[in-house]
């Protein structure tokens, strides 16, 4: 799933899709943690997932706010437009 999320992030140009792919990747990472926790029978994996979740939430809210700003400015969601920091 992580690999899929990575593919999605690299391929799609739409910002939203990139964000969605990022979520997928986070989720996948969390899944890995849970599995590890389940393996050892410890609660730590779940705790980790808990944190990841919180992080994902925060990241999504800020990211979406930025997407909105971008849309307002560029009237487009093309990620490649955000290349003013190119060398």
């Amino acid at each position: 799933m992580f690999a899929l999320g990575l593919i999605g992030l690299l391929v799609r140009r739409n910002i939203l899709f990139i964000l969605m792919s990022t979520e997928v990747m986070l989720n996948a990472a969390g899944l890995a943690f849970i599995v590890a926790g389940a393996r050892w029978g410890a609660a730590d994996g779940q705790v980790m997932f808990f944190f990841i979740l919180g992080l994902a939430a925060a990241e999504v809210s800020v990211g979406l706010a930025l997407v909105l700003r971008m849309h307002h400015q560029y009237r487009s969601l093309d990620a490649d437009l955000l290349s003013r920091m190119r060398g």
Partner: peptide
């Protein structure tokens, strides 16, 4: 065997974050 996070996943991830999206 992680019911807590399963619930959490549904509530927070699928419920809140996706709804935001």
């Amino acid at each position: 065997g992680a019911p807590f996070v399963a619930a959490l996943e549904v509530i927070v991830y699928a419920g809140a974050i996706m709804v935001l999206f």
